[in-house]
Amino acid sequence: MKKLINGAENVVAEALAGMAAAHRDLIRVHFEPNYIVRADAPVRGKVGLVSGGGSGHEPMHGGFVGRGMLDAACPGAIFTSPTPDQMSEATKAVNGGAGVLLIVKNYTGDIMNFEMAAELAKEDGIEVRQVVIDDDVAVKDSLYTAGRRGVGATVLAEKICGGAAEEGADLERVAALCRAVNGAARSMGLALSACTVPQAGKPSFELADDEMEFGIGIHGEPGRKRMKLEKADHVAEMLMEPILADLPFRRGDEVLLFVNGMGATPLIELYIVYRAAQAIAEKHGLAVSRRLVGPFMTSLEMAGVSITLLRLDDAMRKAWDAPVVTPAMRWGA
């Protein structure tokens, strides 16, 4: 294991301290329980947006805290859901009187911890809604699995809901928008190499130099199948095909195309994949009107890429374009 750390035990706490110092104009970090809130929280009269999940996916979620996106993020241990006390304290800290939306990725641990947190928040008299994100088409048979994982659509939902909340949408509208984004987004990812959880000390799986792992999640867990490495254009096709077929996306749909890096894949390769993915989308008759390219939801130092396609409507497009000022996403302001 080759990492710039001081000790596996301290990775999350030291990274949070660094984030607090680097972005003191935008965020505040609370320790024990750990959560990140926007510097001006709570914002009176605005719906609060709280998300969270295991650490190791930076900039998600902490890097998305700020005006126009999340009010709070709860980081767990690496690849481990945060605990209910983190979420319920964060919920209290951002409650501006208009209720709080919890954006939850569909993983067994996240679901259970957020459920317990929502119970606690209700005891505190805070109006809470939860929306579960489950956009990963790699997970096929929902009846016999924990269901589809929440992946790339989470980033889009957090931005879009944040934009709407900032402009005064009420809790029901923000929650409905979040469900709509999740319902209209599909994702698929693959890895060229595994990642190493600091406390585990070795890679979560082994891939030969000429292999790739297709249908991965974001926790270093193995994917659906292992196959020979293909050229970028072919990889883009393999990712886009199941995405296009699943929703399904139809000729004339206006879409947002998001090409996400898993951590170690450089931007130059992401743009090669983007170029191919956009050509495939256009050939399919889609109008790509919004784009996002970069490492926004990573898996430590995993090499790989995921693609997310979101069918836009007017409300989503407007909220996507709204100003955002966070450590990792910033435009229009």
């Binding site: 767990g76 481990t80 859901s81 605990t83 006390d85 993983y107 641990g109 259970m112 911890n113 317990m116």
Partner: peptide, 12 residues
Amino acid sequence: LIGSVGGAAGPL
């Protein structure tokens, strides 16, 4: 355990 384990194992 609920306040310190996280993941699925914490709630379970």
